[in-house]
Design a protein around this nucleic acid. Structure first.
Lengths: 203, 203
DNA sequence: TAATAATTAGAACGAACGTTCGATTTATTT
DNA sequence: AAATAAATCGAACGTTCGTTCTAATTATTA
């Protein structure tokens, strides 16, 4: 069972536990990214994590909790790093850059995880869904605030829609990005910033 | 079995056949949109289409062919209507508008189908995948050409990336659009055009 | 070292899956 | 009306699924 509350002294045993746990999460990310949540079987996740089938159920109550842990961890990290970046940005343009760079950089370093987060949101239900939704809404609020600053006093730009469109551009990347053709992240970021900054600040 | 070659006289029987067929496609679109391709069972598709389970296999060889027929029909129509719109557009701005309006209008009238097309591309394999990929590449080429015209002789804008970003914004809509809160399509289109047109034509 | 707790392995469960097949019903043709 | 073809149905197949349970193994504590 995942324990997100207590943090006992990091004994060797605990370190082993957490290693296994993140190995399972990594295996789940790769498997679900390739086969989809419904298509990915717990058996294949276990095989990739080099653990028995029932071993998975020692760390997670069920398959859905596995997906939840993956999304919750990935999204939380994404929000955290964005907040750090935003704290050291001053102008609206710098803040927009923080948003875009943060998303792209995290993306290239966690291809499978982010693909799962983007593609399998609706595979969660009930409490799991609500909790992830909350984190995503927090992320969205951060971005919307930045966009409002970029827009300034200009009329004709709806920050809500602009943020949604920007999210689309960012989240769509996993559909076409090929890590083997190591496209320069700097170029990606520059292009997207150019379009959205100019697009929202033009008279 | 789907027959896309011969087109015999539209007897009453044939009309019944095609009615059933599109009823199945509609049921499949709704079911797959809600449950995902792997999650949607042929049994539930059949139930929604008011036909027996084995009845599906009279019209389609297997489940994947059902998904293929859905995507092939939807995407082909999308490309066709875009070509018509582009033919009657003159300036680059009008053409960009054609792209965006076409996508949005088709989207609101075919919510389930477009969601499946966007979300289940990778659920196809082999020949099915290649064939749909071809259509999508044709669509992409059309849009890229328009973007090249909008850009004109300006440097610093990569039409390829710009097209991909635009596709992201367009395809992401299914994640947040709520038909019950009938958001005005005109506003959506206007906002997106404003961002991308200004974004690509600014000095 | 003995007792205790944490972790893993293996077998088994019922349920649901995609697909097939022969029989039956419905529509068309002779 | 009889013969033929098209369309539908219901039952069944083998497979895979998520999950559970008990026993064995490993690590920690006393």
């Amino acid at each position: 069972m995942v324990n997100t509350q207590t943090k006992p002294a990091p004994t060797r045993r605990n370190r082993q536990y957490e290693k296994r746990l993140s190995a399972i999460l990594k295996a789940a990310a790769k498997t679900i990214a390739r086969e989809g949540y419904e298509g990915a079987s717990v058996r294949r996740v276990a095989a990739r994590a080099k653990i028995g089938l029932s071993g998975i159920y020692y760390y997670f109550h069920n398959k859905e909790e596995l997906l939840f842990a993956l999304q919750e961890h990935t999204f939380s990290t994404l929000v955290e790093t964005l907040q750090e970046r935003l704290a050291s940005a001053e102008t609206p343009e710098e803040k927009l850059r923080a948003v875009i760079d943060n998303h792209f950089e995290y993306f290239v370093n966690n291809l499978d995880e982010l693909k799962v987060c983007v593609h399998e949101i609706e595979s969660l239900s009930g409490h799991y869904y609500k909790q992830v939704l909350k984190i995503r809404q927090g992320y969205f609020a951060l971005v919307k605030k930045v966009i409002r600053e970029v827009r300034g006093r200009r009329t004709g730009i709806d920050p809500n829609l602009a943020a949604l469109f920007l999210f689309g551009s960012l989240n769509w990347v996993y559909m076409w990005y090929d890590p083997r053709k190591n496209t320069e992240m700097k170029k990606l970021s520059k292009q997207l910033r150019r379009i959205y900054f100019n697009g929202m600040t033009a008279p």
